[in-house]
Design a protein around this nucleic acid. Sequence first.
DNA 1: GTGTTGCATACATGCAGCCTGTATGTTAAT
DNA 2: ATTAACATACAGGCTGCATGTATGCAACAC
Lengths: 208, 208
Amino acid sequence: MQHDFARRSNRDRTEATRAHLIAAARKLFTEKSYSETGTPEIVAAAGVTRGALYHHFADKQALFAAVVEQEAAAVAEEIERASPPSLFAHDALIAGSDAYLAAMRAPGRTRLLLLDGPAVLGRAAMDAIDNRHGNRSLREGLVAAMRAQTMTRLPADALTALLASAFDRAALAIEAGASAEDYRAVLMALIDGLSRAPHPAPRPVRTR
Amino acid sequence: MQHDFARRSNRDRTEATRAHLIAAARKLFTEKSYSETGTPEIVAAAGVTRGALYHHFADKQALFAAVVEQEAAAVAEEIERASPPSLFAHDALIAGSDAYLAAMRAPGRTRLLLLDGPAVLGRAAMDAIDNRHGNRSLREGLVAAMRAQTMTRLPADALTALLASAFDRAALAIEAGASAEDYRAVLMALIDGLSRAPHPAPRPVRTR
DNA sequence: GTGTTGCATACATGCAGCCTGTATGTTAAT
DNA sequence: ATTAACATACAGGCTGCATGTATGCAACAC
């Protein structure tokens, strides 16, 4: 027997176990809620024991953070796929907005990323995750629009955070059954309200 | 002895005990977090036993809901005090915005109302509370501005929710140490972006 | 008016079940 | 042989409920 199937390298074992745990936790955290999901349930779904969990993660929160990170990355990837950099700034913003709202329709994502995430990890940690993933492209789009003079010049970080929060709230409302058209219309009106005529700059505008 | 001090009517006892429990819970929920605060700690601070708690409240969540409700009412009251109905719609919006941001500087309020509240009670229940208190005046202000033709006409519920979420996020960012001026500037820009010249309408503006 | 009787309210105490984190033991990789 | 990757057992704490007790309260008798 040259190679035994049960014989795996430690690196593979770690990788597989972590992946199983994250996948099982993701499923449960999106179906129920963080506090309603116990570690016994998670490890049962992952086919391991609680010993494995606490070997790979410091605590339940750390596992949750890993799930959130992965899910935020998935959302960001869906957005970037929908808004290629070839588009003009304004069009890319629109495309990205719709992609975000579509991505957040995945069951349980809003609770995971928008309710439990901030409450369990704190707004600061959640901001760090968002800035590594989703908000990054939003911020870049806004800065591009401001540089192209098609948008009122404003503090980029604050503008990004506030627009992102409006998108978040829209996703929550839509999942709760509100009119997607209404919320989309308001989001677009907010963006358009910050927009200005593209090239000619009709009259000198005060920069600050 | 006409009246015995130890002798209280049942109604008084109930009122006092509930008030003590809510006050103690409010203090702890604003200092720590919902999940980090145990019922033994709450009842100790309130000077009663867990039996009293579970006699007056269905569970820990119900007590939390009562605290949130009270705190939301307090915030709403601060706002209404700062934005009397005598002001013009736009000015009332600005005054109300500043009053909200000031009210949310009370220690722990952002976590209670903006992080734990939605996560523990759910966005739907939280919306119901907000609509009974703070959001009410915001919505009325927006509707007034739209009726006065000084603001783009948009679905009122969606607009209220999205602007409110932007205010919430601003309050969180400011508490986290971000520049209050930056966030205030962006909030004003968002509102101004939706505003239009009051009476003469200098040049025709595209409605949509 | 006063005393008594019966019931509901307002708790206090103790218990059962669950969950989290850790410490210890065991097997397999290196 | 040493270390990593687990499995198992344990300790502490917390929530919700069930049971017990004292007090308020209303009605009726006298």
